[in-house]
């Protein structure tokens, strides 16, 4: 048993997440799933060096058998054998998300997106806002507490906006 634990201890890597407003996370993890431009990218200790661009989405942190979820927005991740470094514009745990704000932000951006000319800079900007707000709501939908889910349900009426991709227009 002791050996088994030791084995587990060995197979860990450092995860560090920094945002402009905080040092969001720092600690040893067993694995992590990063929201890359073409979907979730699972990383285990000993991964080959890689730099990944991030799109707004869900981050999954695995520590032993425990999983934690968070939402990330645009940024990048540097992956090394023993260290994963994530630098992004914002990171939030489900309990820190302001559901009302995300919902309002989505609607505001949605209205702006449909006002603007297609593919203009403003419309791309609005689309990214929509994406960020949508991912926040989705995280609550999947991993929020019961009261948060209730609040989300009462706002959206039970249906979330469809997922969409913003990776093609990343220069915003």
């Amino acid at each position: 048993m002791a050996d088994n634990n030791k084995e587990k201890m060995k197979k860990k890597m450092m995860l560090e997440i920094v945002t402009p407003y905080s040092h969001f996370f720092e600690g040893q993890v067993t694995g992590v799933v990063i929201p890359s431009l073409d979907g979730g990218l699972g990383v285990l200790p000993g991964h080959a060096p890689l730099v990944v661009a991030l799109t707004p989405g869900h981050l999954e942190i695995i520590i032993n058998d425990e999983r934690r979820f968070a939402v990330l927005t645009e940024g990048y991740a540097e992956i090394g054998q023993h260290l994963v470094l994530i630098v992004c514009n914002a990171a939030e745990w489900p309990e820190d998300i302001n559901i009302r704000r995300a919902y309002d932000a989505y609607n505001r951006a949605y209205a702006r997106y449909h006002e603007m000319k297609l593919n203009s800079e403003e419309s791309l900007y609005a689309r990214h806002s929509m994406k960020r707000a949508r991912e926040r709501m989705h995280l609550i939908f999947l991993h929020g507490s019961d009261s948060q889910k209730e609040q989300l349900n009462s706002l959206t009426g039970g249906t979330l906006p469809q997922s969409f991709d913003v990776s093609a227009d990343n220069r915003v």
Binding site: S36, L50, V51, A53, Y76
Partner: peptide, 13 residues
């Protein structure tokens, strides 16, 4: 050092 999905996307980010 590898880039995912491609170097250009990573650089713009």
């Amino acid at each position: 050092l590898d880039y995912h999905p491609n170097p250009n996307a990573v650089f713009s980010f």
